[in-house]
């Protein structure tokens, strides 16, 4: 077994995990599978690309790599802008589409269908603006550092892993220790009762979109940094995101992260046997297995 698969799996898995947290939160609180979530990853990546490019053009010194990393200060600054703007995009889509459908008391499945339409629109819009050609945040090459045990990782990879770990802990604490977190869990369990108790459900919904889309932007930027930025990156990640959200148990943040890592590692190890061209099928196999054997997921309770 190639130990490098472990590192690749962890890095991909943490990306999938961050995206799956958004899927699991919107699913448990807004009660529908959002097929447009992958597009938030792609939009986050492209907004960061555009912002970073603009910053580099204004102040070329920002492009000089920071320490061992492949990118300059333009990228972290652009990332913050991307997180905020992707959150804004999610709020905009909710105000224009999902919120109106909720107000019309539409069924779950109409919301799912609308998210499908929104996904195609957002994706094609990216393709129109940026074309289908892959793009990169930086052209700098990185040398993978030996970590011992035959494991090697680039500084960018290690940074991504650390950032993902910090974000998961932060989101977990937010949900379990803060008032807004309690409100989110309350709405997720029983929206009507939450209203009766005085929880402003609209505020909770806004928070969920901001959190979910913000995390998606981070995951998208990681994917862009470690692989490349493409309009179809969100679509390609959608199945792994759903597989991880369901495997982790809908509504569970630690579950989504753990399941993201499982999906990422499974992909990395499986491609060594079946070839990289089958990578996308791994998530499908995991999804089918979960639905078959434990549809409530690792941390979910049976309905």
């Amino acid at each position: 077994m190639n130990p490098q698969a472990l590192m690749d799996g962890l890095v991909t898995g943490s990306m999938i995990g961050l995206g799956a947290i958004g899927v699991t939160l919107t699913y448990s609180i807004l009660r529908f599978a959002n097929f447009a979530h992958g597009e938030f990853l792609a939009w986050g990546a492209y907004i960061a690309l555009a912002a970073s490019g603009a910053l580099g053009w204004l102040a070329p010194s920002l492009l000089a790599p920071i320490g061992p990393f492949s990118f300059g200060w333009s990228l972290p600054i652009a990332a913050i802008a991307a997180i905020a703007l992707t959150g804004g995009l999610a709020l905009l889509v909710d105000a224009m589409l999902f919120g109106r459908l909720r107000a019309q008391r539409s069924t779950v499945i109409i919301l799912v269908m609308a998210s499908f339409g929104a996904a195609l629109t957002l994706r094609s819009l990216l393709e129109f603006i940026f074309t289908a050609k892959p793009a990169y945040y930086t052209k700098a090459l990185q040398i993978a550092l030996p970590l011992g045990g035959g494991l090697r990782a680039t500084p960018d990879q290690l940074l991504s892993l650390g950032l993902a770990a910090i974000l998961v802990v932060a989101i977990h604490l937010l949900l379990t220790r803060t008032a807004i977190g309690r409100s989110m869990r309350a709405v997720s369990e029983n929206r009507q009762l939450a209203g009766v108790v005085g929880v402003d459900v609209r505020k909770v919904i806004r928070t969920v979109w901001l959190l979910g889309a913000g995390l998606a932007a981070v995951a998208g930027i990681m994917a862009g940094l470690l692989v490349q930025v493409r309009p179809y990156m969100g679509l390609d990640l959608l199945l792994p995101l759903f597989a991880a959200a369901i495997l982790g148990g809908i509504g569970s943040v630690p579950g989504a992260m753990l399941a993201g890592l499982i999906v990422g590692l499974a992909e990395a190890f499986a491609v060594q046997f079946v070839g990289a061209e089958w990578r996308a099928a791994i998530a499908f196999v995991i999804l089918v297995a979960v639905l078959l054997f434990r549809p409530q997921g690792i941390f979910g309770r049976p309905e």
Binding site: A179, R182, S183, R185, A186, E189, N190, L193, A194, V199
Partner: peptide, 12 residues
């Protein structure tokens, strides 16, 4: 809220 603790129900 069955998934929240007694204390969390009151805090909410």
């Amino acid at each position: 809220f069955a998934t929240l603790s007694i204390h969390e129900n009151l805090l909410l």
